[in-house]
Amino acid sequence: MLNDVIPTPDTLPVHWVWFQILLTFTFVLHLLLMNLVLGGSLLAIGDLVRGKSIDKESQHIPTLIALTINLGVPPLLFVQVLFGNFFYSSSVMMSVYWIMIIPILILAYYGAYIFSRRMDTNSTFGKAMLILSTLLILYIGFMFVNNSTFSIQPDKWSAYNDNPGGTLLNLRDPSFWPRYLHFITAAVAIAGLGKAIWIRFFKKADPEEKEQGIKKNLRIFGFTTMIQFIFGIWFWLALPKDVTMAFMGQNIIATILMMLVLVSAVLIIIFAMRGKLIPSLIQGLFQVILMAVVREIARYTYLDGIFKPSQLENVHQSTPLIAFLLVFILGLFLLFYMYKLAVEPKIKKS
């Protein structure tokens, strides 16, 4: 029955594992930057609400948005290569909201840019633009979570027959809200870690001031990880029973990874609350990678019995992949170089 609503997938030029590896790798890069953008914006708004001055590190938000967009394209393309027949279908069902992401993203960037330019003047308009930009980014995340959950539940696609106008959302999914809240708290946590790293290695200040700033942001990292831990357990238990059980013994690899996620979260809290920057950094990166892999396993479990990328036809054309890898590596170097040129003058001034 489901086969009647799932489009025929395209062929692949090389083995599907290449695309899965690239999807996970590029998603981790995008996730780190996205967390710095959203989490950094939320932390800046938190300072505004408490009547405190916004840290100068927030002036880099527009640059981070540009980098996030650039590094968001590869994982989006790879998920369409492997799961395009699912992703395109869910995108069509929520097309009105989905197509709005492009103009909303442009507005979010300009809002962040105006805020960055007016930071030194303590402008009310600049602060309003920061709040607007953050709300728009939250909208984008909200729609991505909708699309991600909808794309792996083709049994819900029949709702399109009653609502073909492109305004379907997956809000009734029990895992939707914990997934979205988990996403937001993770962003704040990584932003706290990112600010601590920035203060340690790039900010010019006396040692005591730097130490205080590092400990303050590591506490944010640790505390929001505690909250994220709660939302994560809620998210885990809200998944369909077969998916939950895959991480509770039915799939040994998934179970081991879930145990590593839980242990890693505890270690993050311990290291962060003790002000240990390097162990917190290592554990934080490890946690992000683990969560990206767990996310992929959950996707495969949702689609078990319906579709596997291994079913895709391989036409054995490796040249496009080689060309992509060369351009991608060069692109990463260029992005790093441009970012260095953009932030070095600001570092010298700070």
Rank of each mutant, 00 (worst) to 15 (best):
I199S: 00
L138D: 00
S318V: 01
A44N: 06
I220V: 01
G232T: 00
F87M: 12
N163G: 07
F231M: 11
T149K: 15
L107R: 09
H316R: 14
E296Q: 07
G194S: 07
I252A: 11
A342G: 04
Y97Q: 14
Y109R: 11
Q311I: 07
T68I: 07
I233Y: 04
W198G: 02
G46V: 10
A292Q: 03
R117M: 04
P174N: 06
P207H: 07
L31E: 08
L130R: 09
I190C: 14
V327I: 14
I214G: 00
I65T: 02
M248R: 13
W234F: 10
V243L: 02
G141S: 08
A66L: 06
K56W: 10
G194N: 06
P154A: 04
V315E: 06
K216M: 03
P345T: 00
K340H: 06
G275A: 06
I252F: 09
K348M: 13
G40R: 09
D162F: 06
L237R: 11
F142L: 12
Y97T: 12
T68K: 06
K203Y: 15
L330W: 11
F336A: 15
S95D: 10
S264R: 00
F115N: 08
N122F: 10
K340F: 00
A246P: 04
L32A: 09
K348H: 12
Y109F: 07
N3G: 10
V37R: 11
A205H: 15
E57M: 15
P13L: 04
G111C: 05
N35W: 06
G331C: 08
M258L: 08
I114P: 13
F328P: 02
S158R: 14
L38Q: 02
T319I: 09
F271D: 01
A187V: 03
I253E: 00
F336I: 12
E57G: 14
F328Q: 03
L42T: 04
L38C: 03
K156L: 13
G194K: 03
T255K: 02
T24M: 10
K308N: 15
V266L: 09
A298H: 11
S53H: 14
Q153F: 09
V261F: 09
T149D: 10
W98P: 07
K308H: 15
S310V: 15
V343Q: 00
K203N: 11
K308M: 13
A191T: 01
V263N: 00
V79K: 00
P164L: 04
L67W: 00
W16V: 11
V188R: 06
S41M: 03
V5T: 10
F144Q: 11
V188S: 04
A191R: 13
F336Y: 12
D173Y: 08
P13T: 03
T24V: 15
T255L: 07
K308D: 14
G249D: 04
T149H: 14
Y300L: 10
F87N: 14
T68M: 08
L325I: 10
G39W: 03
Y110H: 02
S280Y: 02
E296Y: 06
K215M: 12
